[in-house]
Design a protein around this nucleic acid. Structure first.
Length: 239
DNA sequence: AACCAGGACGTGA
DNA sequence: TCACGTCATGGT
């Protein structure tokens, strides 16, 4: 089996085992308590997100805050931003970096990330979400990568989940799982891994969104502690 | 008490 | 290019 086919097979197995994931989790909905299927910010099977600019912004902020950081700590930071009245483009634009840093303390690297968030909202002030709609995926990605603090994974997360532009997200779990499966070398660079996924899968937003979410779900379960993949009987068949 | 978490940047080979 | 140090809190 060639590796393109393996990529597709892995998706089928994960999708069947875990079901729809409902990424990106949205904490702050304007109509809270709206859906019974919407829990802890997740909305499995409902791909009509984000529903407004606030949710788009929340995804962008979460993408920066979660850099090398546990998602639970990100939730605390997002909640803190909200209770500080900073969860809006306007307030973040006028806030000082120190204020932002204080509010996002729980997410770690708070001084760096405060600066990154400031850079991002300055960009969004020039290129609001409705304006970015008119740009291609590649053009938007290039612009995002020019922002200091927005690397490839953060850019792709923003593209895929906030802007709904189809760019595959590669994270540490993705590399780990694929190398344990023998599909790639563990030191293959980001772009090559992304290219492998994008050339193997059909160019479908839902598939890209779900696949990354499924890899994270599976990665948390079996690939967070060494030896990686131990007890993974789902993908690592003993053969 | 180490180790880990949905990375990115600056530096020096 | 690429390997390595730095940034930092909170859970296990």
């Amino acid at each position: 089996m060639n590796r393109h086919k393996k990529i597709c097979t892995v998706y089928d197995i994960l999708r069947k085992a875990y079901g729809p994931q409902g990424w990106w989790p949205i904490l702050f909905t304007r109509n809270s308590g709206e859906k019974s299927s919407h829990f802890n910010g997740y909305h499995p099977g409902d791909y009509d997100y984000p529903k407004n600019g606030l949710q788009q912004l929340e995804i962008c902020l979460g993408a920066v805050l979660t850099q090398n950081t546990n998602w639970k700590n990100v939730l605390l930071a997002l909640g803190s931003l909200a209770s500080s009245g900073l969860l809006s483009l306007e307030r973040l634009l006028e806030a000082k970096n120190d204020q932002i840093a204080l509010a996002i303390k729980s997410a770690g690297y708070y001084n760096q990330k405060a600066g990154y968030i400031k850079n991002l909202v300055l960009f969004l002030d020039d290129f609001p979400f409705d304006k970015l709609k008119r740009y291609s995926k590649d053009a938007t990605r290039q612009k995002l990568l020019e922002i200091k603090g927005i690397g490839p994974e953060t850019a792709d997360s923003i593209l895929l989940y906030s802007l709904k532009k189809n760019s595959f997200v590669v994270d540490a779990y993705t590399t780990r799982i694929l190398s344990c499966l023998g599909i790639i070398s563990p030191k293959l660079n980001y772009g090559s891994i992304q290219e492998l996924f994008e050339s193997s899968l059909k160019n479908d937003l839902i598939v890209f969104q779900e696949y990354h979410a499924l890899l994270v779900q599976h990665g948390k379960e079996y690939y967070s502690r060494k030896p990686y993949g131990k007890n993974d009987r789902l993908l690592l068949k003993d053969n």
